[in-house]
Design a protein around this nucleic acid. Structure first.
Lengths: 145, 145
DNA sequence: CTTGACTCCGTACTATACTACGAGGTTTAT
DNA sequence: ATAAACCTCGTAGTATAGTACGGAGTCAAG
C-alpha cells in the first residue's frame, strides 16, 4: 500500500505560519492552486505550497496586493501571451520594483541622517526626520505592478 | 491687510492627489496635524502638508501601515524618549527597511531570470518565476517596523 | 445678492484581506 | 470503539484604510 505524499491543511498552515482559513481564502482567490483531495475530501498539499505561501507573504510585506501577486505568480502560466509579452510585463514589474527599492533607500538614508544628527543622550525634541528628507515622496510610487 | 498664507482642503487634496475626506481621516489618525482654522472654521494647510502626504503615500506603497508611518513621523517628536532611544529605534527601522530592500532585490533578480530564460517569441508556457526563486521568501519579512 | 463651488461635521458605506463560527464528517491514538 | 483532534463547507464577522452622503454654513463671481 502506497500512501499519498503531502500534507494536510493544518500542517501546511503551521509550516507557512498562516491561518488554516487563509488557505481556503487563497484558493478562492486563485493564489493557491486547488490541491488534490483524499477520498474523504481532505486537501493534500505538496511541499512546494510552503514556498508559495512564503512568497505571497513576502510580497505582501513589500506592498504588493494579492491581485498583483497573482499576476506575478501567473506570469509563466499565461499561455495566451507570447514570450515577447511576458518579457515586456516582467520588465515593467522590474521597473516598479526598482522604484520601490529606490524609495526604500531614500528612507534608509533619511533614517541614517536622523541617527547621525541625533547624537548625544539629551532630549529627542530636535531630531528631524521628514525635514531630513525633502526629496522623499516627490516621485510617484503607486501600486500598479 | 495681510492675508494668512496657506491652502484649503480641496487645494491640498488636489496637490497631493488624495481625496478630501482622506485629509480628515488622516487628521483623526494623527498622521496630519490639525491645521489652523479660519474664522469660518475652514482649515488652512501649510505648503509642507503636500510633502507629508506624499511621504505617507510613498511609505504605504512600500508596505508600511498607517500605524507604522505614524511611528516614523513622530520619531522626532517623542520628547519623552531620549536620543539614545531614538537612535535605537531608528536602527531597528533601518534593519527592517534593509530586509525589504533585500527581498525586493531577490524579486528583481527572479524577474530578470524570467526575462532572460523566456527568450524567443513562442508560447510563455514554460517560463518560470516561482521556480526561478527557490530562495525567495525563506526569510521572514513581517510588517513590524 | 444670489448662485455655484467649496467646506464643515457626523455617520455610514465600501474594498481588501483575512478570521471566526458552527454543524457535520474523518482520522488517529488509546 | 470512542474521544480528541482534524477537516469540510457556507457564511458571517473583523481590521485597516479609505470613500461617500447629506444637511448646513461660507466664499467669490457676476
Amino acid at each position: 500500500m502506497s500512501k499519498i505524499i503531502g500534507m494536510r491543511a493544518g500542517q501546511l498552515a503551521k509550516a507557512a505560519d498562516v491561518n488554516v482559513e487563509t488557505l481556503r481564502y487563497y484558493e478562492r482567490r486563485g493564489l493557491l492552486p486547488e490541491p488534490p483531495r483524499q477520498a474523504s475530501g481532505y486537501r493534500i498539499y505538496p511541499e512546494s505550497s510552503i514556498d508559495r505561501l512564503k512568497f505571497i507573504k513576502g510580497a505582501q510585506a513589500l506592498g504588493f496586493t494579492l491581485e498583483e501577486i497573482l499576476d506575478l505568480l501567473n506570469m509563466r502560466l499565461d499561455t495566451d501571451a507570447n514570450r515577447t509579452d511576458v518579457r515586456k510585463r516582467a520588465r515593467e514589474k522590474v521597473n516598479h520594483i526598482q522604484e520601490k527599492i529606490r524609495a526604500l533607500q531614500e528612507m534608509e538614508h533619511a533614517l541614517n541622517q536622523l541617527i547621525s544628527q541625533c547624537h548625544g543622550d539629551g532630549s529627542a525634541a530636535d531630531c528631524p526626520i521628514l525635514e531630513a528628507i525633502p526629496s522623499f515622496g516627490t516621485k510617484d510610487i503607486d501600486n500598479e505592478v
